[in-house]
Amino acid sequence: MLEAALKFPPIGELVKWPAFGLPGFNKVALICVLATVFTAGLFFWAGMSKTLVPNTVQNIVESVVEFITDGVILQTMGQEGMKYLWYLTSLFFFIFFCNIFEIIPFMQFPASARMAIPLLLAVITWVMYIVVGLKKHGISYVSKSVKPPGVPFALLFLIIPIELLSTFIVRPFSLAVRLFANMLAGHLLLVTFAVLTGALLGSSIVFLKPVAILPLAMDIAITGFEAFVAILQAFIFTILTAVYLGSSIHIEH
């Protein structure tokens, strides 16, 4: 009986949303647009405020900006990286809002759990750090970044392909996959326990109905954890972007 009730939907079904209204405009697109609106709205609200004493929104926005300045840029790029502050801040807020919809009722889906969004952001970062490196060091950027100084000649045949692979191919891929897989895994966890709760509640065996409290409690706990993960993954994406940009600026490693 329980087997009949516990029918876990395939993952492909879980993340597939129908389009409504505009062509291809599904839930993920809606979340992206909302993330854009919220981020821009926060910044406009904070920036337009004429009072010198900051209000709550200003405080939140400015503490994040200061955190990205002190905790991310100055530690990875130094003073030179201050011109990328706007990009890193936008990135942080956009990813955070895309993530946090995972636990917002009636949305309950992180846009970053679709490969399109992390891939897009990772590709932007990838292009950015390569362009920054080429601009700063010219064409020697490529040779410098694949050939660490002080390596014996014989090892170069081993090192150069590895560095080439890790710098120009694995970096954007791992950046995208990290965010995507984290958010998808979190979503699957939430769905798993929700499905389990529903199956236990709908079970025809009466004794199993109270047991539903266990997966429900787990679901609530994971919801809290996912809020933390949403912030953490946004932070990790931001700081890795900063690290990669920093490694393009200060090439010697």
Binding site: S174, V177, R178, A181, N182, L184, A185
Partner: peptide
């Protein structure tokens, strides 16, 4: 964690 996530993928 990236390794575990690649396993997940």
């Amino acid at each position: 964690e990236a390794l575990a996530l690649i396993g997940f993928v």
